[in-house]
Design a protein around this nucleic acid. Structure first.
Lengths: 191, 191
DNA sequence: ACGAGTGATGTCAGTTCCTGTCATCACCCT
DNA sequence: AGGGTGATGACAGGAACTGACATCACTCGT
């Protein structure tokens, strides 16, 4: 299974992120990305369905991590706790990659088309969470709402982790995660 | 301010929805839409920035309705109630347009690119809600979370309203809205 | 060792989305 | 009547994506 220069997909992803950072997403051409990676435009589209997909390659793992954590939660845990456990597990994938995550997020924030794709990713994570909850016996619409609420917490958590002030030690994701979940509970408390 | 055949924008929007329903979004060409509307491709892009924008023309009003309702809520109402009031106001815009909404939603559901745009719309509504809450003095992250939770309720509500069984009287949106909000409160209740 | 097979890449042509530029047309105002 | 204004048409072109086929590096069976 040997071939040419190894890791074409990786080289394309790296070249793309570099160029998106250097000169912006819209202003970067697929031909340029391919050229920097020493490949062809046609080959780029063999590895990534769209120009934007190159930034969203790792979604599958997140998906699996979330689902696995919900399944692994104690059978008698309430839905919101299972979701909280899943978020903690997912958060673990980001610790230690703060700078890279920040760069990627900056590119996405600067471009509406990428923001849309990011939201789609979050929605698909929500759908996966909801499905995992249903398999625990949680009924609708509780499952969907718990999942959506969980993703809302994740969104807020991630944003606060990315944008935390540069001075001092980095706080870890779990810190913001706990904080956000408590805030949600407080805000929706009807009792 | 008179001119050619009136309401070019409206004719384009109508032709687009028809064609999207008839043969699918991807399979419909902007040139075809323009031709059915008796106009030119170039003119289509003068009225709508993208091929998909033609389905998302009314977002501005929703935006305004939500914001106005939050502002109009009693000053001492808790955030979640202000959000609930906003959702009721927004829901009012859909009553009586069930069939049209269903058609539009079917086109969107069938196409990932359109789903992404739909999510972006919801996210921008969430941002508007959050901003309105902040102006009522709600702090972060409570404002963002209340807004996100509200939009989650809206999403679930709308979906259930669209997909309700065809037999019997149509239930109105407010019915599902109340039901969904209660489910969210139940699911996040920590006490 | 050698030839067929396999999978990744290159090449090329073509469609569609979208944009810039300039001409043209219908209507308005003075 | 004639100029101004704003919407539209006509045309050229870039960039995203796709399909079809050739080519290359490597593998495997014999």
């Amino acid at each position: 299974m040997g071939r040419w220069e190894p890791n074409a997909r990786g080289r394309l992803a790296e070249a793309a992120l570099e160029l998106y950072v250097e000169r912006g997403y819209e202003e970067t051409t697929v031909a340029e990305i391919a050229k920097r990676a020493g490949l062809t435009e046609r080959t780029f589209f063999r590895h990534f369905a769209h120009k934007r997909e190159v930034l969203f390659a790792g979604v599958g793992e997140l998906h699996d991590t979330l689902t696995a954590a919900v399944v692994a939660a104690p059978a008698d845990a309430p839905p919101i706790d299972a979701v909280a456990a899943a978020l903690d597990a997912a958060a673990g994938m980001f610790d230690g990659h703060h700078e890279r995550a920040r760069q990627r997020q900056a590119v996405i924030t600067a471009n509406p088309e990428l923001q849309e794709r990011e939201l789609m990713k979050l929605a698909s994570l929500a759908a996966a969470l909801a499905e995992a909850l249903r398999q625990r016996g949680v009924a609708e619409p509780a499952a969907s709402l718990a999942a959506e609420a969980g993703i809302a917490v994740f969104k807020v958590t991630f944003e606060r982790w990315i944008n935390q002030p540069d001075r001092g030690e980095l706080r870890d994701i779990a810190h913001f995660s706990r904080e956000s979940l408590d805030a949600l509970k407080a805000v929706t408390a009807g009792c």
